[in-house]
Every structure is written in structure tokens, then in C-alpha cells.
């Protein structure tokens, strides 16, 4: 998840928390400190407020993901070679506009377009 997305969730939680019980959080620090994030999430969950509970869950999954169990190492398969006639766009980039979910693009890093 991008930092900006984490920041957006944290900022949203900040606003709702302030509105519901008047507590003010430090959104920047929330992103950087897991201990602080845990405490803010705990406080948010003490309120019986559906929006706060939803945001607390969301923030927890964004900032404090469960430690993944180790997986057996997998080697990337080489790209399949397929003969293609000149002018055949069936297998070219024109054929699909889908992102490759395995290789997330570094969009908007150092460039806008």
C-alpha cells in the first residue's frame, strides 16, 4: 500500500476520532510509529462507533499487517515465447490495458505522466 493511502486512512480516522470524542492524534507519527498506531487503534475501538471501528480495522490492516508465514521460494517463470507475425497485435500491449498485479507500477514516483 502506498504511503499516501496509509496517510489518507490515518487522516480520516483522525477527523472522526476528533469529532466523536474530541481526541486529537498526530497523523504523521501514526504512520511512522507502530506503537502509537496500536494505541490509537485501541482508543478508537473503545468507542461504540461503527465508523471508528471500520477505520480502526482498516488502519490496522494497513499499518500493522500480520506477519506472513514463510513461503517456499518460487522462481519466476521465463516469459513464454510465442511466434508472432508482423502486424499481429494480439499478443502485444495493445491487446490488454490491465495492470500486471504481480509487478505494481511505480506510478507518480518522480514523474506525473
Amino acid at each position: 500500500m502506498l504511503d499516501s493511502e496509509k496517510f489518507a486512512i490515518a487522516a480520516h480516522l483522525h477527523v472522526v476520532l476528533r469529532r466523536v470524542n474530541g481526541r486529537v492524534t498526530d497523523v504523521e507519527w501514526l504512520i511512522h510509529s507502530p506503537e502509537y498506531a496500536r494505541e490509537v487503534i485501541r482508543v478508537a475501538r473503545t468507542e461504540d462507533h461503527p465508523e471508528l471501528l471500520r477505520l480502526a480495522d482498516k488502519l490496522e490492516s494497513a499499518l500493522l499487517p500480520p506477519v506472513p508465514t514463510p513461503k517456499p521460494e518460487r522462481r519466476a517463470a521465463p516469459p513464454a515465447e510465442s511466434p508472432r507475425a508482423t502486424g499481429d497485435f494480439g499478443a502485444s500491449r495493445f491487446a490488454s490495458s490491465d495492470f500486471d498485479p504481480v509487478v505494481p507500477r511505480q506510478r507518480y514516483v518522480g514523474t506525473l505522466r
Partner: peptide, 9 residues
Amino acid sequence: GFGQTALMP
């Protein structure tokens, strides 16, 4: 953050 993080439109 330019060049390091995504500056999202």
C-alpha cells in the same frame, strides 16, 4: 518526497 514516494494526483 519527489522521486521517492508517489505524489498522487
